[in-house]
Write a protein that binds this DNA or RNA. Structure first.
Length: 310
DNA sequence: CAGACGTGGGA
DNA sequence: TTCCCAAGTCT
C-alpha cells in the first residue's frame, strides 16, 4: 500500500508520515469491532455516534456497549429521546456514572430537534453548542460520523503523541495549546480516493492508546511504532511532571450524590426524606447533596418527596 | 484554571 | 485491599 501523504512537519519539525502509516496498518489488523464504528450514511450514524461519544466520556468501552445498544433501541433518533422526559434518560443511563451526562444528552436531543430539524449537525460550532458536547466530542462526531478532517484529541491520542513524538512518559495534566497544534500537524491529508483517511487515523491512534500504548503498563513489545517512538529511543524515561493527585472518594459529596441517585433511579415513585436517609445518615451532608442534585436538575421535588425529573 | 463530577474493574 | 483510572465537560 502506498504511504499516505505526509503531514506537514510537526511543530518540532519531525516527519510523522511513518508514524501515521504504521498506526494505520496496525489498526487495519487489530481494530476492535465496536458497533458505533459500523459505517453508514452520516444521517443514520451521527446520532449513534454522538450517543457513544457521550457515554464514553470517562466510562470504559465494556460498560458502554450494552447501555448504548439499549439506548438506541429505545431512542433511535434525537426526536425519540426528546419526546421522552429527562428523567427517563437519567434512569436509562443506569450506572454509567456522571448522570449529568444523561441530562445533557437529553437536552442535546431537544436542541437538535428545535434547532436542526432533528438531524445531528455536522458543523463544529453547532456541535459545540450542544449541551455536553465539548471540543473532543464535536471533533469525534465530525470525524467518525461525517468523515471530516478534524483533529480528535482525547487522552489516548495525547498519550501516544506525548510518547511517540515528544518522548515524554505522560502528557501534561491538562490539554495544552501545543498538544492541539501537534495533533493538527500530525493529522494526515486525505489522498485522492480516500477522503476518510484522516478520520481513520484518529480512531487508529485512539485505539493504539487504548490497547497498546496504555497509561498503566504499555505493551511496547506489541507496538507497531516502538522502533520510531521518541520515548522508547530516549530509554523510556519516567514521568518528570508533578505527581497526579488521585480523586478522593469515601465520604465525599460525589459518593453521597451517587447513592442518592441510585435510590431514586430504582424507585418506582417519589421518595421522601426518610427513605433518602438510607443513602447517607449524615443529615447535613445528605441534604446539601440533595440540594446540589436539585440544582443540577437531576432531582425534582415531587409530592412532598423527591424524584427524577419528569 | 483547578476542581467537581460516578462507577466498577484490573493490577 | 488500596490505588489507579476510562473516548471529558463545565464552572
Amino acid at each position: 500500500m502506498p504511504p499516505p501523504p505526509s503531514a506537514p512537519a510537526s511543530p518540532g519539525g519531525e516527519d510523522t508520515s511513518e508514524l501515521v502509516s504504521a498506526v494505520l496498518r496496525w489498526y487495519a489488523a487489530h481494530a476492535r469491532d465496536l458497533p458505533w464504528r459500523h459505517p453508514g450514511p452520516p444521517d443514520e450514524i451521527a446520532w449513534p455516534v454522538l450517543v457513544s461519544e457521550v457515554m464514553l466520556q470517562q466510562t470504559p468501552v465494556a460498560r458502554v456497549e450494552p447501555a448504548w445498544r439499549a439506548w438506541l433501541e429505545r431512542w433511535p433518533s434525537p426526536a425519540a429521546l426528546a419526546a421522552d422526559g429527562p428523567g427517563e434518560a437519567v434512569r436509562a443511563w443506569g450506572r454509567l456514572g456522571y448522570p449529568r451526562r444523561a441530562l445533557r444528552l437529553h437536552a442535546a436531543a431537544v436542541a437538535v430537534v428545535e434547532r436542526h430539524g432533528g438531524r445531528v449537525p455536522s458543523d463544529q460550532a453547532e456541535l459545540r453548542a450542544l449541551p455536553g458536547v465539548g471540543a473532543y466530542t464535536a471533533a469525534a462526531v465530525g470525524a467518525f460520523a461525517f468523515g471530516q478532517r478534524v483533529a480528535v484529541v482525547d487522552t489516548n491520542v495525547r498519550r501516544v503523541l506525548a510518547r511517540a513524538v515528544q518522548g515524554r512518559a505522560e502528557p501534561a495534566p491538562a490539554l495544552t495549546a501545543a498538544e492541539t497544534a501537534l495533533a493538527a500537524s500530525v493529522l494526515p491529508q486525505a489522498p485522492p480516493g480516500d477522503p476518510r483517511l484522516p478520520a481513520r487515523w484518529s480512531v487508529a491512534v485512539m485505539e493504539l492508546g487504548a490497547l497498546v500504548c496504555t497509561a498503566r503498563a504499555p505493551r511496547c513489545g506489541a507496538c507497531p511504532v516502538a522502533d520510531l517512538c521518541a520515548w522508547q529511543r530516549a530509554g523510556a524515561p519516567p514521568d518528570d511532571g508533578p505527581a497526579r493527585r488521585g480523586q478522593a472518594w469515601h465520604g465525599t459529596d460525589r459518593q453521597v450524590r451517587g447513592r442518592l441517585m441510585a435510590l431514586l433511579r430504582e424507585a418506582p415513585g417519589p421518595l421522601d426524606d426518610a427513605a433518602l436517609r438510607a443513602a447517607w445518615d449524615d443529615d447535613g451532608q445528605r441534604e446539601r447533596c440533595l440540594a446540589s442534585l436539585v440544582a443540577d436538575g437531576l432531582v425534582v421535588p415531587s409530592g412532598g418527596g423527591w424524584s427524577l425529573p419528569l
